Simulated assay, not measured.
Amino acid sequence: MRELRWASQEGDGIEHLAFEAREDGFQVESVVVGQRYGKSYGLHYEVRCDTQWRTRYARLKIVGAGELELHGDGDGHWRDGHGLMLSAIEGCIDIDIAATPFTNTLPIRRLQLAQGERRPLQVAYISTPDLQVTRVEQAYSCIELGREYRYEGIFRNFTANMKVDEDGLVLDYPTLFTRLPRER
Score class of each variant (00 low, 15 high):
residue 100 T to Q: 01
residue 57 Y to M: 02
residue 108 I to D: 03
residue 71 H to W: 11
residue 81 G to V: 12
residue 68 L to E: 06
residue 65 A to D: 15
residue 97 I to D: 00
residue 55 T to G: 02
residue 79 R to W: 07
residue 99 A to Y: 00
residue 110 R to Y: 05
residue 83 G to L: 12
residue 75 D to Y: 13
residue 56 R to M: 13
residue 109 R to T: 08
residue 64 G to F: 10
residue 97 I to K: 00
residue 63 V to S: 11
residue 104 N to I: 01
residue 66 G to C: 06
residue 68 L to V: 06
residue 74 G to Q: 08
residue 98 A to H: 05
residue 72 G to H: 04
residue 109 R to N: 13
residue 65 A to L: 11
residue 106 L to G: 04
residue 77 H to P: 03
residue 77 H to C: 10
residue 81 G to P: 11
residue 78 W to N: 09
residue 61 K to R: 12
residue 75 D to H: 15
residue 62 I to A: 03
residue 77 H to R: 14
residue 53 W to T: 00
residue 111 L to A: 08
residue 111 L to T: 04
residue 64 G to E: 13
residue 69 E to H: 03
residue 71 H to R: 07
residue 83 G to M: 12
residue 70 L to S: 05
residue 95 I to L: 15
residue 87 S to W: 14
residue 70 L to V: 12
residue 107 P to N: 08
residue 63 V to Q: 14
residue 80 D to R: 08
residue 110 R to E: 04
residue 64 G to R: 07
residue 87 S to Y: 13
residue 100 T to W: 02
residue 111 L to W: 09
residue 67 E to M: 11
residue 98 A to M: 06
residue 108 I to N: 03
residue 85 M to F: 14
residue 76 G to D: 12
residue 64 G to W: 10
residue 80 D to N: 15
residue 71 H to L: 12
residue 99 A to F: 00
residue 65 A to V: 06
residue 98 A to Y: 01
residue 57 Y to L: 07
residue 53 W to D: 00
residue 93 I to S: 04
residue 78 W to T: 14
residue 76 G to Q: 10
residue 92 C to E: 05
residue 91 G to W: 07
residue 54 R to Y: 00
residue 81 G to N: 11
residue 80 D to M: 08
residue 81 G to S: 10
residue 107 P to V: 07
residue 78 W to C: 09
residue 98 A to R: 03
residue 76 G to K: 10
residue 55 T to K: 01
residue 79 R to D: 11
residue 69 E to C: 15
residue 85 M to W: 14
residue 57 Y to V: 04
residue 65 A to Q: 15
residue 86 L to R: 10
residue 95 I to E: 03
residue 92 C to W: 00
residue 87 S to M: 11
residue 69 E to D: 07
residue 106 L to N: 03
residue 95 I to F: 00
residue 95 I to C: 03
residue 53 W to Q: 00
residue 90 E to F: 06
residue 89 I to E: 10
